[in-house]
Write a protein that binds this DNA or RNA. Structure first.
Length: 492
RNA sequence: CGGGGCGUGGCGCAGCCUGGUAGCGCACCUGUUUUGGGAGCAGGUGGUCGCCGGUUCAAAUCCGGCCGCCCCGACCA
C-alpha cells in the first residue's frame, strides 16, 4: 500500500524518516535543514510543554521571553562560548531588500544602504542576551535567586540535519537562573536534572541515565554539564536534556554582580538547562515499531479511538450512536478520545491508520459488541485484545492506558538492561560499540584519549555516573590508572 | 566541506542509452457493490518533464551552464 514503512531491520534510519513523515508529525520545508512541525507533531510538543511547564512552575520558575536577535559582540564575551557556537550562527547583516532586474526577471538583493552597524546573530542559545539583562536587574543579594524559563525557537546552522533530532531551527525551553552561591546553583542544576529524569521516565516512558558530561562533551561556557541519556532501539544513545552549572563564567563576562549581606560585591552563579523538540524524535525512536508510532498514553494527543463497525444502515446508526455515548463517558473520565465514523474507508484501513499515528488504545465497536454491551479494546503495544463491558469504562479504559504506559517503559528499560554491560579489554570495547548499547568501561579521564576513542570507534562518553562505586583499574584505551567506570556509546 | 544519489501529475517511479502522440502504481473525483485488518468493479480529473541556453525539421531524451533536495562522513541538543 501507499503507507509502507521501511522495516527497522532493513534500514533503521529510513524507518525513522518514514514514520515521522507518514504519521504526519513533520514534513520537510522549502529551506534545507528546516522542517514543518505538523499538527500531529505539534500536539505532542504542546503536551510536553504543558507538563514540563507545570513542573518548572511548581519549583518556583517563571516564564519570560527574550529577543531572537543578539548583538554579534555578545557572542565573543565568553571565550569557550564563542568557540562552541561561532561556527553555527546565522547572522543578520541588512534590514531590507531592494528589487533588481527587469520585468520578467525580477529579483531581490540586500539593499547595501541598509547594512547594519553592528550585525545581529540569530540566537543559537540565549545565555548572552539573558545575562546582559540580569546585569541590569541584579543589585543586591535580595534580588536573588532569579529563576527564569523561556519557550523559544533557536537556530544552529548544523552541517547535517535529521527530522526532530537535529534541525537548523528548533523549539526548546531554556531555563536561566542566577544565585548568590555556588552551592545554591549546583542544587538548582540537580533539581532540574531530576525534573528531566522524572519527565522522561514517567511521561515519555524513556528510561534515562543521568550523570556528568566530560570536559570534551560539556556545554561551551559551562563549569559542568549534567545530562539525561536515553537509548534508542538501534543501540545508539540520545542526549535528551542537559542542565549546566555555568559557575561565574557568564557573570564575569557580563558583569552580573550583587552586593552581599556582608557588604562586598560578588558575581552571581548561573545555571542554564534545556530540552527540545528532539524529545519527539526520542519517543519515535525508542517506542515505535514497523507499523508506525507508539505514543506513551500520558503524552499522546489522542489516547483512544473508537471504531464503529457496520454492515448496513441500521447497524451504522446503532454502532455510531453507541460509540458517541461511550466517547462522552470516556471524556468525562478525562480520556482524550474520538470516534472514527468515516464511511469512506473500511475498518481495516482505520486500524492501520491509527496504528501508524501511535494511538495507544483502539476500541472496536461492532454489532456483536453492541449486542453484548461491550467494546473490544486493542492495545497498540502488541495488539492484545481485552473485551470491556460498557459499565465501568470510565475506570477500565484509564487503567488500560496506565498499563500500556507502564509496559512501554518496562520494555524500553529491558532493552537497555540487555544492552548495558561492562567491558574491560579494548577488543571487547570495539566489538561492544559495534553491537550497540551502553558500555561501562574504565576511562582515564584524559580528553586526548577520549578523542582517540571517538576517532577509532565513533563512541563517546555519554555520562560519568553519579556516586559511581570505586572500581580502579586500567583505562580501557590507554591503560593509565582510572578510578572507575563511565558510560560509553555511539550517539545521535 | 568531502563522497554518493536524485529532480517527470499530490506521492512513488518508468521512459533518456538509440530524439518523433508523456506512461504506470498509489492518491483524488463520480457511480455502484462492500465494511470485524490497508475493498472490488466501471468511468473520470490532473503534468510548461527543476531552471537557463545550445544542437536539430523536431528535445523529457543529445550538449553546456546553473539551481535545489535526499543519503553517508567531519560539527552538534
Amino acid at each position: 500500500m501507499a503507507k509502507e514503512i521501511t522495516p527497522r531491520a532493513t534500514d533503521y534510519a529510513r524507518w525513522y524518516t518514514d514514520v515521522v513523515l507518514k504519521s504526519q508529525l513533520a514534513d520537510y520545508s522549502p529551506v534545507k535543514g528546516c522542517m514543518v512541525i505538523r499538527p500531529n507533531g505539534y500536539a505532542l510538543w504542546e503536551n510536553i510543554q504543558k507538563t514540563l511547564d507545570g513542573m518548572f512552575k511548581e519549583t518556583g520558575h517563571v516564564n519570560a521571553y527574550f529577543p531572537l536577535f543578539i548583538p554579534k559582540s555578545f557572542l565573543a564575551k565568553e571565550a569557550e562560548h564563542v568557540e562552541g557556537f561561532a561556527k553555527e550562527c546565522a547572522i543578520v547583516t541588512h534590514t531590507r531588500l531592494k528589487a533588481t532586474g527587469e520585468s520578467g526577471h525580477m529579483s531581490v538583493v540586500p539593499d547595501p544602504e541598509s547594512a547594519l552597524e553592528e550585525e545581529l546573530v540569530v540566537r543559537p542559545t540565549s545565555e548572552t542576551i539573558i545575562y546582559s539583562m540580569f546585569a541590569k536587574w541584579v543589585q543586591s543579594w535580595r534580588d536573588l535567586p532569579i529563576l527564569l524559563n523561556q519557550w523559544a525557537n533557536i537556530v544552529r546552522w548544523e552541517m547535517r540535519t535529521r527530522l526532530f533530532l537535529r534541525t537548523t531551527e528548533f523549539l526548546w525551553q531554556e531555563g536561566h537562573t542566577a544565585h548568590a552561591t555556588h552551592e545554591e546553583a549546583e542544587e538548582e542544576v540537580l533539581r532540574i536534572l531530576e525534573i528531566y529524569r522524572r519527565f522522561a521516565e514517567d511521561y515519555l516512558a524513556l528510561p534515562v541515565l543521568t550523570g556528568v558530561k566530560t570536559e570534551k562533551e560539556k556545554f561551551a561556557g559551562a563549569l559542568r554539564t549534567y545530562a539525561i541519556e536515553a537509548l534508542m532501539q538501534d543501540g545508539r544513545a540520545l542526549q535528551a536534556g542537559t542542565s549546566h552549572d555555568l559557575g561565574q563564567n557568564f557573570a564575569r563576562a557580563f558583569d552580573v554582580r550583587f552586593q552581599a549581606a556582608s557588604g562586598g560585591w560578588e558575581h552571581v552563579w548561573n545555571t542554564s538547562w534545556g530540552v527540545s523538540t528532539r524529545l519527539i524524535g526520542a519517543v519515535v525512536m525508542a517506542h515505535g515499531d514497523d507499523d508506525g508510532l507508539i505514543l506513551p498514553p500520558r503524552i499522546a494527543p489522542l489516547q483512544a479511538v473508537i471504531v464503529p463497525i457496520w454492515r448496513n444502515d441500521e447497524q451504522q446508526r446503532e454502532t455510531v450512536a453507541a460509540a458517541r455515548e461511550i466517547e462522552g463517558r470516556l471524556r468525562r473520565a478525562g480520556v482524550s478520545v474520538r470516534v472514527d465514523d468515516r464511511d469512506s474507508v473500511n475498518p481495516g484501513f482505520k486500524y492501520a491508520e491509527w496504528e501508524l499515528r501511535g494511538v495507544p488504545l483502539r476500541l472496536e465497536l461492532g454489532p456483536r459488541d453492541v449486542a453484548s454491551g461491550s467494546v473490544m479494546a486493542v492495545s497498540r503495544l502488541d495488539r492484545s485484545k481485552t473485551p470491556l463491558p460498557w459499565d465501568g469504562l470510565g475506570e477500565s479504559v484509564p487503567a488500560l492506558l496506565e498499563a500500556i504506559q507502564g509496559a512501554l517503559f518496562e520494555r524500553a528499560r529491558q532493552r537497555r538492561e540487555e544492552t548495558t554491560r561492562g567491558v574491560d579489554s579494548w577488543e571487547a570495547f570495539v566489538a561492544g560499540v559495534e553491537s550497540g548499547g551502553f558500555l561501562l568501561a574504565r576511562h582515564c579521564g584524559g580528553t586526548e584519549c577520549e578523542v582517540q576513542i571517538q576517532d577509532e570507534t565513533k563512541a563517546t562518553v555519554r555520562v560519568i555516573p553519579p556516586d559511581r562505586p570505586d572500581d580502579p583499574g586500567p583505562c580501557v584505551r590507554c591503560g593509565a590508572p582510572a578510578a572507575g567506570r563511565v558510560v560509553f556509546a555511539r550517539a545521535y
